[in-house]
Design a protein around this nucleic acid. Structure first.
Lengths: 338, 338
DNA sequence: ATTAGCACTCTAACGAGTAGACTGCTAACA
DNA sequence: TGTTAGCAGTCTACTCGTTAGAGTGCTAAT
């Protein structure tokens, strides 16, 4: 069913105002702020119609209207003004990335921080599962005391490192051999693809078995440290979460990195996708998550999510995410050129 | 002033019951549960006296008594039953540390988790400031693409690593020279002590200046990632934080790693120290922090803190901290023996 | 020193009553 | 036919008075 232009205008007004103020909109208020040429009565009949169509809801008889989930979806798909961020805002964002950034962890933290600060919602970043990252090279460093540092350089420029405690003696030759062996097995592959060579099981290479196991083991163990959260308390600023039990539920979800990561995993393939009002899922109500796949210098590194009340400022959030994504990619390209 | 035995008994009863139930204690209730041979009236006069002495407080005239801050202090110093953890509990804790743990980060996370899980309060671990850690050795690893991985092995067995982007060409010889140079400067010293050698400023070593700066810079930058929090939502389980604004304040404090670290910094020198009711400090009321210096295998690595309501179960918390500390140290000693 | 008895105080819960915020409907109007 | 004014109806949120109950402090008796 088609929505008339006037209805569209009213629907947009209700969403915008409700996002800003979190209180139901009356016919009067809509007239005063958005349609001064109409009478409240006319607005009322339009509101009735929009409610009939499922876009608006009345909390109770003598209250105004608030947008339904359907309204938010429609708003995001058809009504939203996809504006660019102002130059000042973009500059402000750039400020967060000033100074030398040498570690992925640092970069990711800053990104999470700026997303949260700019949007005033909670942000989450989940780095891609190590299983899918292509390994470029492996280096072994002898740390004496029988400790060996394993450095893995991956596709995304990410470096994961882990120390391995070796029972056997480590000599100069051992390291050279082991390095070559590991690189033969791992280089150019993802962790998913790698299999232990038969010769390692009980062949002549069985003495390297422990090392191999340790590397695999350590790589997999990193998984749950790859979730970054910023601005967890921000969600408590919104009246939807005045209720202490809802608040507690939300914060408990933030505590649980695994749950957070899985909530983020439904991000669509390309660009920005959003999941509105994922109700009924363990009591997380009135909550929306905007997710986007994120890349640095063209390489996808993970997903970023913005968690806020359903009446989120989707426009702003999406602008911010786009802007940061642009900055991240241009920045790294510059760096690569050097 | 001396406290009679009967007063002691009553004080302990009030603290214990209030910790468990969070509601004011009446003379009646104390009599029924702890002093069946007395009349409520007698208990009342004792309560009056204890209130006079500053150990008890009445929320309002017709309510029972609750412990004052002074009472908690007295309780911890004189009344607490410093019991050992049960064998089952100790075994349960051990379970958290099963499997290979090869990274300090992993170990710290697990420790934070088990502290929070066992006590049901929020736990924080702040690793010692890098400035104070003694550096054992530095290794450089060429990662190609002009990237250099700097591995720093420290006193506490902690390994901090960072990549450095070098403008100049890196040759085999360069790395060997640079490694030797860096080790001459850093090995055996703490970061605080290190100064840039004069020859690096404009002498024959000036080409290494960038590397030196990068190492210092990168080391210092790690600081705020060295704070680990677990069970942030747990504090919301306690009625003290039913008030949404208090809850928000608390969670906001958790979000701010720097603030958290500084709140933890007042830990006493040895053993377990606790800071009760650090009121008035930016609105964090009804909140206590138990802090302890933590070590692994005899080397101090940082501080652990337990954050909960003032009516915390100090007994349990301290037992758990002690037990975990023991396990951590014995575990590593075993490993070192091998 | 302890206790029973009692008057007193304060909270928390309940219910009635009220103001006011909006709506939906009806009837008039362009 | 679309728009509007007017009005009755409904629901919330707030206030206020009342009351039950919890617990104390005091006094006088044991």
């Amino acid at each position: 069913m088609e929505i008339s232009e006037r209805k569209t205008k009213i629907l947009r007004a209700v969403v915008d105002e409700y996002v800003a103020g979190a209180h139901p909109l009356s016919s009067q208020e809509i007239r005063d702020k958005h349609l001064p040429d109409l009478s409240p009565a006319t607005v009322r009949s339009e509101l009735s119609a929009l409610e009939e169509m499922g876009y608006l809801v009345q909390p109770h008889t003598s209250a105004g209207r608030i947008p339904s989930t359907k309204a938010y979806k429609y708003y995001v798909d058809h009504l939203m003004t996809r504006r660019e961020l102002s130059i000042e805002d973009a500059e402000y964002i750039r400020g967060y990335f000033e100074g030398k950034i040498m570690q992925v962890e640092d970069l990711v933290r800053r990104t999470a921080k700026v997303v949260s600060d700019m949007t005033n919602y909670t942000s989450v970043i989940v780095l891609n599962d190590i299983e899918k990252v292509r390994i470029k090279q492996i280096k072994l460093v002898d740390l004496t005391d029988g400790e060996l540092l394993v450095v893995i350089v991956t596709d995304a420029g990410v470096i994961r490192d882990t120390t391995v405690n070796m029972d056997i003696d480590i000599g100069e030759g051992y390291i050279a051999t082991a390095t070559q062996l590991l690189n033969n097995i791992f280089t150019g592959h993802t962790l998913e693809e790698v299999e232990m060579p038969g010769s390692m099981i009980d062949g002549e290479l069985s003495s390297f078995r422990q090392l191999f196991d340790n590397v695999i083991d350590a790589l997999k163990r990193r998984t749950n440290s790859q979730v970054y959260l910023e601005g967890g308390s921000k969600i408590l600023d919104y009246p939807e979460y005045r209720d202490i039990d809802k608040a507690r539920n939300m914060i408990a979800t933030f505590d649980n990195r695994d749950e957070l990561a899985s909530a983020m995993s439904m991000a669509e393939d390309i660009g920005i996708s959003l999941k509105i009002d994922k109700d009924e899922r363990g009591g997380i109500e009135d909550c929306s998550v905007v997710t986007a796949r994120y890349s640095i210098g063209g390489k996808e590194i993970g997903k970023v999510g913005v968690i806020g009340p359903t009446r989120m400022n989707y426009d702003k959030v999406i602008s911010v995410l786009n802007c940061i994504n642009d900055i991240l990619n241009e920045g790294v390209e510059d760096e690569q050129k050097e």
